[in-house]
Nucleic acid binder design. Sequence first.
DNA 1: ACCTGAACACCGTTCAAGT
DNA 2: ACCTGAACACCGTTCAAGT
Lengths: 181, 181
Amino acid sequence: MPRKALNREQIVQAVVGLLDAEGADSLSMRQLGSRLGATAAAVYWHVKDKEEVLVLAADAVWREIQLHDLEGSGWRAAVTTMANDLHAMTLRHPWLVPAMSCHAPHAPGRARYEDHLRAACEAAGFTGREAEQATKTVLTFVFGTAFGEHKGEATASTAEDLAFGLQVILDGLQGRLDARP
Amino acid sequence: MPRKALNREQIVQAVVGLLDAEGADSLSMRQLGSRLGATAAAVYWHVKDKEEVLVLAADAVWREIQLHDLEGSGWRAAVTTMANDLHAMTLRHPWLVPAMSCHAPHAPGRARYEDHLRAACEAAGFTGREAEQATKTVLTFVFGTAFGEHKGEATASTAEDLAFGLQVILDGLQGRLDARP
DNA sequence: ACCTGAACACCGTTCAAGT
DNA sequence: ACCTGAACACCGTTCAAGT
């Protein structure tokens, strides 16, 4: 006897919790249903299929990242903070990277983050196409780091690698800014 | 009536073919068995489980990458070629990145490639820990690029992004070499 | 040593039927 | 509108039994 009908918000929250607790392999629509006090089939009234459920969860977690004001401490610090925050988020949700690699590239939660990162690059002095490329380079590198982190690898050494690679990228970008007219 | 007993080599080859043709989602042990003219259970005589099958396939494809002599055309060219070749390989086998994200980080096929990339970094002048970090930075970036490439995104623009990001990283690494005693 | 057939405990998804 | 129960067509894996 459900007090209130299910809704998508509720489902997404349950999926994230289940993925965090059990991992991506053991997520089933049946288990998801039962966590919601309903049957698997009930979930299908609210979502199209399992893939949609994963897409929703994979986008929701991006909203956990707090976006700070870009005025003040310089673009290198801003980009570094954003990269570290994204990295920390991928560590909280180890299922995210595998889930994203199979599904939906562009969704609003992720777009929110990417827009802010791009703004940080524009604040640094990049414009147009180059701002886009700088944004993508940083994002791509953090994804690659998260990707290399699954099971086994020492987390400490990966954090250091992240820092090293990020410095290298920022130095390279700085060089491009300096070479501008 | 099998002429000859199955072997692992044969199984790995069949898995790669199946993954290339059908994608990772539709790989099943039953289908794999039937492609080999056998039953799913027969495969279990040769491998532990489905995960091992994926690990073997995910390592085998690294051997497709040809490794060139490092003498001659400079470290930037060498690293760029290696990055492009790895990238091309991930495009031939789009199932690889998702498969790797869940399974076994270090296997001989991959190690063979990484060792050569590290040698290229050492030829550039990096030593010890820094050579390791430089290697990992490049590798991480190519993984990130491959990761961002699944379904939808224009391949042309991603190739250009790869080139841009790689330049940025090489510039950043160059700066570190120049700042050496 | 190597393989088959059948079974177990699961899946995702659909769909009539209920309220 | 929203949910259940039962069913369909699949899974991965195990294991006795065959050769």
